[in-house]
Simulated assay, not measured.
Amino acid sequence: MPPSGLPGTDDVPGADGDRTAGPPPDARTADGTGEGPRARRWCRGTRLLVAATGAWALLLVLHVLLAGRWWLWLLVEAVPPLTLVAVPLLLLAVTPLARPVRRWLAPVLVLLLLAGAHLAGFGAVVRGGPDTAARGTQVKVFAWSTDYWRMDDDEQDFYAFLRRQDADVYLLQEYLYWQDDEPVRIDDTTRLREELPGYHISVEGELLTLSRLPVVAEHHRRVPDTGTAWYREGSKAQRTDIRVGDRTVSFYNVHMPVPFQVGDNPLSGRFYRFLRDQYDWRDRELAALRADLAENPHPALLTGDFNSPWTGSLLDPAPGSRAHSPASGVLPARSWPVSDYPLPRLWRLDWLFTTGDLAVPGYRFGGGGDFSDHAAQEIRLVVPGPTTP
């Protein structure tokens, strides 16, 4: 018998071969299986989901930081903006299966989804919504990237399409031909005067502005009259000052350089040299446009083919301007491609900005698919009268 006050062996848990004794209580799970540490391990699917979320968050941050700032990032800029919504939605769809992390992972993905939706253009109509109550002189503007000026089109149908627009101001891009990968300058002014009588014709490089309103001034960049300087050194934002009512308004006809050529081999050095050259070219032209706007005393409308789906979010061609988006249903507006390419219409490359007190009560993407890979922009501009002191 043991001394008084000391437990006997029968009182000691696990003594004398007590085979039922297990790990201490803190090592057991609620069901007493003793599998706590193993149950807390993440399965492979959960680890993959967490890794994918982290990678996507990093990519989104890098996109915000590098878009428009690094030439190699032009490859990422080519991704359709709707991807920024599709990826977090897909990850959210499988999050309920990752039970150990779903409570904190779902809110993270919702934040990534909202950020992506903002960058992709959801809600843009609200931010730049129509000015239905605007009062002043109305101007009908038609802007369109023509896909190399009726190179493969029937002339009669092409000009009939332009006439039907009955615009006060036409802002047209790609007024040129291409031959053996070189731009070819054209002069179609005689036909233009026959088809659109009464319009002032202004040409700068491959940009064409037509106006039946009085033209106050044309601001053309001086370039050498040799080779292809008219195209490669000419302005990519043609400015024409036009009299609207009692005010002068600057109309900028914009066509920024393409980032790369569809079909080029991405494994070749030529592809990346072209990519860097195009980035430098775009950077110079955007800087020139911003500088001109900063010194321009007139209200301005800027529109055309900016060749980037991120112009309205991550690229700002006109600081202090107001971006406009046409109503397009559930998804953000898209303008390319409407023809020529076996791709879905997922990109918006054609944009509209205004400065000053100009109002846009009407704006939509119209036709153009019969002649070009770009949808045309139909714009109703209102220019308020001059303010009185």
Rank of each mutant, 00 (worst) to 15 (best):
M1K: 09
G5C: 11
R19F: 10
A27P: 00
D31T: 14
G32Q: 12
G34I: 13
E35I: 03
R38M: 12
R38I: 12
A39D: 11
R41A: 15
W42S: 09
T46D: 09
R47D: 09
R69F: 00
L74S: 15
L75K: 10
P80F: 10
P81N: 08
L84Y: 07
L89N: 05
L92W: 04
P100Q: 07
R102N: 06
W104A: 08
L114D: 01
G116R: 10
G116N: 06
H118S: 13
V125A: 15
G128W: 11
P130E: 13
V139E: 01
R150E: 05
D152K: 13
D157C: 03
Q165D: 06
A167I: 11
Y170E: 07
Q179C: 11
R193P: 04
E194S: 15
E204L: 01
E204M: 05
L213P: 07
V215A: 02
V216Q: 09
E218W: 02
R221V: 15
P224E: 02
D241F: 01
T248D: 08
Y252G: 06
H255K: 03
H255W: 01
Q261F: 12
L267F: 14
L267E: 05
Y272T: 00
F274W: 05
F274P: 00
W281G: 00
W281P: 02
E285Y: 07
L286P: 02
N296S: 14
A300R: 05
L314C: 10
D316P: 12
P317K: 02
P317H: 04
A318G: 14
G320T: 13
S325Q: 15
W336Q: 04
S339E: 04
L343Y: 14
W347K: 12
D357W: 07
G362K: 07
G367V: 06
G369Q: 10
S372W: 06
H374K: 11
A376E: 02
